[in-house]
Nucleic acid binder design. Structure first.
Lengths: 224, 224
DNA sequence: TCGATATTCTAGCGCAAGTTAGAATTTTCG
DNA sequence: CGAAAATTCTAACTTGCGCTAGAATATCGA
């Protein structure tokens, strides 16, 4: 039965294999990537339950059954999607961290890099809902997102230490920013004329410099 | 057939009705409210497709079929939920606007009022997904949210005019804030020890005063 | 208490979507 | 070209859920 071939295994190849089978498997891997990308986009847009296998397959001119050649079931496809998105997120986070600089600079560069990545790779499944996965998968994803959140919080802590970021509760502020980013992946793709630069400017105005203008009353209590 | 009674109509009563039937209908209305509240909470948590009628009914110790005594179908229930949430949102918006003050003050008071409302009435369906509604319902909801967004933008414009808010693109900034609020309704309820005051402080730090601290480089370009 | 009304339940229909089996088709390579 | 492998399709099964019909129970006024 050809179905048992499991092309997934071909990505990590055994020893002593000829070079020829690689040609096939590379094509297979490419298609797997395409399916994954389409799945991420559609799940992000409509939610897991409303995103049907037929929808995802149709995005690549396939029938739903063809997807089961690459993924054992819908959950596994979604799980791979979450992993893929978090890998991206983490890679950016790690690179920005390694590049050094003040806490505020890291934060700025991270946001810029994330938006740039979205242009190339489309909307992602960074955080948000994972309740449709089963226990262990969901725990893995949640633990991963928690680690990433912690890394972001550390940027804020570094900034508070080096004076480039004002005092705040890092955990809460990070969640607020995550909210902005999640909503961005759902909203921004459908907005014509929207550039990353404009988005970055808006984020700069809102989150970095703050909305308060020159005549703002110093204590918030002045508003009553 | 008792089913044709349609208790919905009892909320807007006709003329010349005795006072007695009201007792029943008020109870009916109460239950309708409870169903609506549960539906909003569950749909907000799991999404429309994953939220089953059985889930919603179970939250009130009912069987799914009982819900059809109060709402004709699942879509109508969700639609009523969206309307209810937007009514709340708008009521707060209108009240804050009427109370006057600078643009920044209005924005602050609005956020405070919205968070306070969430404590009493639970997470809401303010913005977010409405793709599961049919054409006209969805358009109505989207038009409504667009109007509310415009009202929020006006707060920013007023603030830019009176000097309490720094220059920015109101439409984009409002979307970013909306993202924070949507995410809040999904995340905050499950966070122990989280108070509205701490959330407001975090929002104040992030969105109002901005994260940039005393040693922050003036131009963002200083980060490279 | 009793009849009428309001409310909820049990049982089941119909359909959409995930999934599978196996046939059909395409691709690869000697 | 021809066989073997890889890929996709057709057709059908299964399950869960929205929804309905009608029976059963609870509530309330008289």
């Amino acid at each position: 039965m050809a179905k048992g071939a499991d092309p997934v295994a071909l990505t990590s190849r055994g020893l002593g294999d000829d070079i020829r089978p690689m040609a096939q498997s590379q094509k297979s891997v490419k298609k797997r990537e395409a399916i994954l990308r389409a799945a991420i986009e559609i799940i992000n847009a409509k939610g897991f339950a409303a995103a049907t296998m037929t929808d995802i397959a149709a995005a690549l001119d396939l029938k739903d059954a063809a997807l089961y050649y690459y993924f054992p079931n819908k959950q596994a496809l979604a799980y791979a999607g979450h992993q893929r998105s978090l890998e991206r997120f983490e890679a950016i986070l790690v690179k920005v961290d390694a590049d050094g600089g003040t806490g505020l600079c890291k934060l700025r560069r991270f946001l810029q890099a994330l938006l740039d990545d979205a242009v190339d790779n489309g909307p992602q499944l960074y955080f948000g809902d994972s309740s449709y996965l089963d226990q262990d998968q969901r725990q893995a994803i949640e633990a991963w997102t928690a680690r990433l959140s912690r890394r972001l919080e550390r940027f804020l802590e570094e900034g508070m230490a080096d004076g480039t970021i004002a005092p705040c509760e890092p955990a809460l502020v990070v969640q607020l920013m995550v909210g902005m980013l999640i909503w961005l992946t759902k909203w921004a793709p459908g907005t014509p004329g929207l550039t990353n630069q404009r988005l970055l400017d808006a984020i700069e105005a809102l989150a970095m410099k703050g909305l308060a203008g020159p005549k703002a009353p110093a204590p918030p209590e002045a508003c009553g």
